[in-house]
Design a protein around this nucleic acid. Structure first.
Lengths: 175, 175
DNA sequence: CTAATGCCGACCAACGAGGTCGGAGACCTG
DNA sequence: CAGGTCTCCGACCTCGTTGGTCGGCATTAG
């Protein structure tokens, strides 16, 4: 349902927490887990993967824990989702075209276009570093600007026509 | 895993097919199913939902089928995903904050920022009408412009620093 | 009337997500 | 120096959602 998993959620949480509190101090998984009231074991697993990616430095034993090993500007939301969730493509075809044995490859007329949509989403995710996550920025001005841009780029009249499209956020979809 | 479901996939397929081939002709579900080699029953279910949304006009009986009831510019990818998949929020908190009983509401420091990321993705999806899906447009110019915009809006140096972020599309993620 | 189509609900199977368990190494304490 | 404890680490398991299927009913063209 086009939502990022809890693992990615936790990863972003932990990363932002480390970026804020763990500048040079080692932070235990338990600390983060208790701070956000999330299952420690699951978060531990997420931390392991983040460490394996080289983004976290781990030190075992008491007074051990994790430290942010890289700059908070060098990892993006897209990177995290891709690492923790294992791929972040919209469709299955786009991750491994031949591996998944997509029969419709020849028939699929929207493969290219949907891939285009995919790239859009990926780009958005790939250009939001975790620093922005912790900085809690929600500038309305930038948002409206992006809307304009996205609408304009290759289908200005179409998007302009519908105008009030985003209103259908939460209608009647939970039976 | 931040991927749209097959149902959404099929919905987009059918919609684009109807927009192209079914201008005023009624198209049977079977025809689309065979065309794209997808399970007819599942697609039928999807079609029903699309019809119930008022986007498709259905006519029963022999020589019956579906017709696109609205302009191909008045429905966006976001609309379809939301209708077929049932909600398209990135996190569970964002769909029904109090319903899902999110304990971390007070603790969650990234709720706002992640919501911001969520809105970004939603905006992208909400401003790509199905017409663009069928037109298979992949203008590189527009893309680069969007990248600039997304990067610039509130964290120019951060995004500028990493620059080559999108290279990590398909690395080593399928063990 | 018959056949073909959409319509609707219930049902089942499988994959993946979410969560849990026991181990191995490292630090601290006595 | 030795034991205990705390940490990371990897494998394991359960459960829910998703994808997919089946049957029966209403409707309409031929």
């Amino acid at each position: 349902m086009l939502g990022l998993s809890k693992k990615s959620d936790y990863a972003l949480l932990a990363l932002s927490y480390l970026a804020t509190n763990g500048e040079s101090r080692t932070v235990r998984t338990k600390e983060i887990a208790e701070r956000f009231a999330i299952p420690a074991e699951l978060l531990a697993k997420v931390m392991q993967r983040l460490a394996k990616m080289g983004w976290l430095a781990s030190s075992p034993g008491p007074s051990g824990g994790y430290t942010l090993a890289v700059s908070d500007t060098s990892i993006t939301v897209g990177d995290v989702v891709r690492a923790v969730d294992g791929g972040s493509a919209l469709t299955h075809c786009m991750q491994s075209p031949e591996a998944s044995g997509c029969e419709q490859w020849a028939n699929c007329t929207i493969r290219g276009p949907l891939g285009f949509v995919n790239e859009r989403v990926q780009d958005v995710l790939n250009h939001i570093p975790i620093r922005d996550i912790r900085e809690r920025a929600t500038p309305a001005s930038a948002e409206s600007e992006l809307v304009k841009l996205v609408a304009r780029d290759h289908s200005a009249p179409a998007a302009a026509r519908r105008a009030g499209a985003s209103r259908s956020r939460n209608e009647g979809d939970t039976p």
